[in-house]
Amino acid sequence: MTAPTDSEIYDKICELLKPYNPKNHPIEPSSGIMSDLEVDSVAVFDVIMEIEDHYDVSIPMEMVSDIKTVGELVTAVKGLTA
């Protein structure tokens, strides 16, 4: 499998975030996952599990605490799938 591109990862993350964004806040790379999209601190980790399963990677919790925006999450996943 070839490594996914930034935009592929971004599209996938937007899709996975959808059920956790009931107020349908617009998603942009700069959106704060908790601050703008209002995903609660536990649900964030549920999204992470979905991403881990989709890309078959481990994203440990300590790494997640440094990720604030959708763009930062894309970068982290990119690093793990490269």
Binding site: F45, I48, M49, E52, D56, V57, S58, P60, M61, E62
Partner: peptide, 21 residues
């Protein structure tokens, strides 16, 4: 320590994540 979360009450999911790690 690195910390990984597995799906609630799901031993198969734990198995998968242990293997993945």
């Amino acid at each position: 320590a690195s910390t990984i979360r597995f799906r609630h009450n799901n031993p198969e999911d734990l198995d998968k994540r242990l293997r993945r790690r």
